[in-house]
């Protein structure tokens, strides 16, 4: 009798737990982390962030040693590949310097001020991918610096992702390789073929982004891809990556392409959050007024500004 009652109680406890979990999953999926559930997450982050930062300082060298131990073969291969790349880049540097000088002169002569000036905050990465299906980064700067959800995140090499959660003292970033991440991108034009735009998304089990361009788009391996003017998430012109593969879809209804991002997420230590929200061009794009003799560029606010595109 007592055994049956105990078994019944066990099933009752399991049922309560299952129903609680299903309710939590439903609420979180429908409403996101904006309500009380989100507040709990933010409180947990605030409690753990200082410890996470301290542990990170200690664990990073240990992690580097561990990586060296586990991936020693890859490290040697990477080292050889990087040496070759350095040699090739040295050769290109001179030509690039010349092109940059020429570009500056041309812009001066055309009085174009198309470089974006965006208020930004640079954060140290204190946590990454805590789970196996959670491609995120955690940084040590949060709402106190003006960061809010959906703000774009970049590194010197190119875009990194977007902010998905913020609390006082930290923020979580969804990286661009997450299958739930997407960004508007643009190809360079080739001769008579104009630049084309598309939506690039992360892929399951891959570090490349997938994108479908319209049929007839001229895309070549190695083409440099940037964010498109139609992108609501990122200012246009930010570097995304290079075309790795491009194949025509059967029936010639489009061009399937993959983009290898410029950023190496595993090597990042710092990232920059652009204090820019979609649909608010005011704080980002400089207002340029040209008189007969002078040009004045005004950016609202007075915090740090940086040049992120061209």
């Amino acid at each position: 009798m007592a055994g049956a009652r105990r078994a019944s109680r066990r099933r009752y406890v399991l049922l309560v737990i299952l129903l609680t979990c299903l309710t939590l999953i439903t609420l979180d999926t429908r409403n996101g982390r904006s309500g009380p559930l989100g507040a709990m997450g933010r409180i947990a982050h605030r409690i753990v962030s200082p410890a996470q930062g301290a542990v990170d300082d200690v664990a990073r060298p240990v992690g580097d040693w561990w990586d060296g131990l586990i991936n020693s073969g890859n490290l040697k291969r990477d080292n050889r590949r990087l040496q070759e790349q350095i040699a090739a880049l040295r050769g290109k540097e001179t030509a690039a310097d010349q092109a940059i000088k020429e570009n500056i002169e041309l812009k001066k002569s055309l009085l174009l001020h198309n470089l974006l000036e965006v208020k930004n905050v640079t954060g140290l990465i204190v946590g990454r991918d805590p789970g196996n299906f959670d491609p995120t980064l955690t940084i040590d700067k949060g709402s106190e610096t003006g960061i809010s959800v959906d703000m774009p995140v970049i590194a010197p090499e190119g875009i990194v992702g977007k902010v998905i959660e913020v609390w006082n003292g930290g923020a979580k970033i969804q990286v661009l390789t997450d299958p739930n991440f997407s960004v508007g991108v643009q190809t360079p034009g080739h001769g008579a073929s104009p630049a084309t735009t598309g939506i690039a998304s992360g892929q399951v089990g891959s570090h490349d982004l997938a994108v479908l361009f319209d049929a007839g788009t001229s895309v070549l391996r190695g083409d440099q891809i940037v964010t498109s003017p139609q992108s609501t998430l990122f200012p246009s012109g930010l570097a995304v990556g290079t075309i790795a593969t491009a194949t025509n879809q059967p029936g010639n209804i489009g061009v399937n392409a993959t983009i290898t991002p410029y950023v190496h997420l595993g090597a990042l230590q710092h990232v920059t959050v652009l204090l820019w929200s979609q649909g608010t061009p005011g704080p980002v794009l400089p207002t340029t007024t040209t008189t007969s003799t002078t040009t004045t560029t005004t950016v609202p606010g007075s915090t740090t500004t940086t040049r992120v595109g061209g």
Binding site: L18, T20, I25, G41, T136
Partner: peptide
């Protein structure tokens, strides 16, 4: 019963730090 309760608490604690839906790990662990 203890396994389910502890699984729920540990999973919920971990869920707070993930971007996957809250309660997913709690349900699995429980």
């Amino acid at each position: 019963e203890a396994g389910a309760i502890v699984g729920f608490v540990a999973g919920f604690g971990f869920d707070l730090f993930l971007s996957t839906p809250l309660g997913l790990d709690a349900l699995t662990y429980a």
